[in-house]
Design a protein around this nucleic acid. Structure first.
Lengths: 203, 203
DNA sequence: TATGGTTTTGAACCATGGTTCGAATTTCGA
DNA sequence: TCGAAATTCGAACCATGGTTCAAAACCATA
């Protein structure tokens, strides 16, 4: 494990290679969400991506590196959404609502975003550090929005750290039971969650 | 796997046997929380329980059966707390607050309660059915309290199913980051979470 | 102390699964 | 079309980890 040295492993050039890279990450994310990191096998990931198990090692250094890129990619999405909300100029409640909806969209609609925060401990130390650092950056960004609302007086004076973790915990746990095509749509879920959680913040 | 036939496996008699049974469950729960079900090894569980790996099979049929009893035990605790709140005669908001605090106490204070809801899919079908049934019973109990508040007009008219899942998701996710002896105590966490989540319910 | 049941264990078994390797196949510019 | 680079794969390697087994150690009772 941990045979990654530079940022990109080999084979980052061609257009086609980049496509199969994406396909692998998507297949892996689906497998991770179904059986967890340790439970999902390379053979299963290969089958979902429609190529041989050995071929995975042409694109990635190993199983852990696949998990790393899954998490890293979805964290980039989340961070972008949080930054976008922060500069929107809307009132704090609307900003948080934006972030909640964007977060759920990332986690539920896009297949490869589910394993963003789950199973960080499965990564070897150097990769884990990078993911944890990025995840903390996202958590701080959300927390800053909460704290801004508290300072402005529109939110109740609760601990922003705890409230932020409660919100993120509620959001991330949706991947455990939500299934596309089920009784509730992702859009309705996002609306209800946003209303409920934002209401909890208000003074 | 699934070599369990009757409710109790062998060796349920002596007082001492029952003690080591508990010790094994506690050690296993700690290991599961640390590395997940698939990630935690029987040798690690044995070491934490201070006995040999082979000895585990004198008390339990296998790894999956250990997970089953972990989940079953903590679900009993949660159900008892929910029932207790339901018959308290307090207003809905106070009842939900009670359940939230009890839930966090179960999940954070008692070491063997952490893996209650996580990793249900790891169980073989027959055991999984039993755990899922009990877990659903608990979720319905909490949902009934929420629905009662909505009907009484003290809660906003949101979907009780989604709101309940949001609450339980926030509560269960605490085991991912909470560590006893850390910056925040379990009691303060419970108070903040209860205030925040109950406030989200109010009309 | 002798005896039968309970409890514990070291060692090995065996399936699973991540990984490697060398060759075959495909791709693509010259 | 030719040949080098990129891509794919079957097969095997090997460590890990759940599990089994027969024998030893323990413990209560007669």
């Amino acid at each position: 494990m941990v045979r990654i040295s530079n940022g990109r492993s080999k084979a980052s050039g061609s257009r086609r290679a980049e496509r199969t890279r994406r396909a692998i990450l998507q297949a892996a994310a689906a497998a991770f969400r179904e059986h967890g990191y340790a439970g999902a096998g390379m053979r299963e990931i290969a089958e979902k991506a429609e190529l041989s198990p050995a071929n995975l090692y042409y694109y990635f250094g190993g199983k852990d590196e696949i998990l790393f890129y899954c998490q890293d990619h979805s964290l980039d999405r989340l961070l972008a959404a949080a930054d976008e909300a922060a500069v929107s100029g809307e009132p704090p409640a609307a900003q948080i609502g934006r972030v909640i909806r964007a977060h759920l969209r990332c986690v539920l609609d896009e297949l490869d975003g589910a394993s963003a925060h789950l199973e960080v401990d499965a990564l070897p130390a150097p990769l884990r550090r990078r993911v944890v650092a990025k995840r903390d950056r996202y958590e701080r960004a959300v927390r800053a929005l909460v704290a801004a609302g508290v300072d402005a007086g529109s939110f109740a004076g609760r601990d922003p750290i705890l409230v932020t973790r409660a919100i993120l915990g509620a959001l991330n746990s949706t991947v455990r039971w939500f299934r596309p095509g089920g009784a509730v749509s992702a859009a309705r879920l996002a609306d209800e969650y946003a209303d409920f959680l934002v209401r909890g913040l208000l003074a």
